[in-house]
C-alpha cells in the first residue's frame, strides 16, 4: 500500500501517544503515522516500510535517547534517505548537537519540548510543502 508516513521517534511512550494523537487529529487519514521508541527500532522500521513500498515524508525525533542519540540517528538516516524532512523535538539538546544535525543531516527544524501544537503543525505543513 503506498502510504505517506510520518514517523515519530522518542523513548517516551507518552510523547509518542500524544504526538500521534495530535497529528492524527490534525491530518486524519491523509498520512500513516508510525512510532518507534529508539533509533535502532526506527531504522529497522524505516527499512521495513520502504520495503513495503511506503514513503517516509517526515521524521520527528527526540535527541536525548538511550543508545544512539537523535543527532547521530538523523545524520545516519539522511545519508540513506536525504529527502526525508527531519525535525528534532527535544527536551534538551546541546547547541553543538543541533549545529551538527543542521549541517550534516539538513535538519529542517528543531523544536523544544514542551512544544506548541500550532508551531509543530505549521512546521510539518511547511515541511510537507517542500516535498
Amino acid at each position: 500500500m503506498l502510504k505517506n508516513v510520518i514517523l515519530c521517534v522518542d523513548d517516551e511512550k507518552i510523547i509518542l501517544n500524544s504526538l500521534k494523537s495530535q497529528l492524527k487529529l490534525e491530518f486524519g487519514n491523509a498520512y500513516a503515522y508510525e512510532t518507534a521508541e529508539s533509533a535502532i527500532d526506527a531504522e529497522e522500521l524505516i527499512d521495513e516500510l520502504v520495503l513495503d513500498g511506503c514513503k517516509i515524508l517526515i521524521i520527528v525525533s527526540d535527541w536525548l535517547m538511550p543508545g544512539i542519540k537523535g543527532d547521530e540517528f538523523l545524520i545516519k538516516i539522511h545519508k540513506k534517505y536525504p529527502q526525508i524532512v527531519k525535525i528534532m523535538l527535544t527536551g534538551h539538546a546541546s547547541d553543538e548537537a543541533i549545529e551538527k544535525v543542521i549541517k550534516e543531516a539538513n535538519l529542517y527544524q528543531c523544536l523544544a519540548k514542551p512544544w506548541s501544537g500550532d508551531e509543530l503543525i505549521q512546521t510539518i505543513r511547511n515541511g510537507l510543502k517542500k516535498i
Binding site: 517516551e12 495530535q22 527526540d62 527535544t90 527536551g91 514542551p114 512544544w115 506548541s116
Partner: peptide
C-alpha cells in the same frame, strides 16, 4: 530533559 518531556506530553 526529564522535566520537559512530561511537560511536552501534558501540553500536547
Amino acid at each position: 530533559h526529564e522535566i520537559n518531556t512530561p511537560l511536552g506530553a501534558i501540553r500536547s
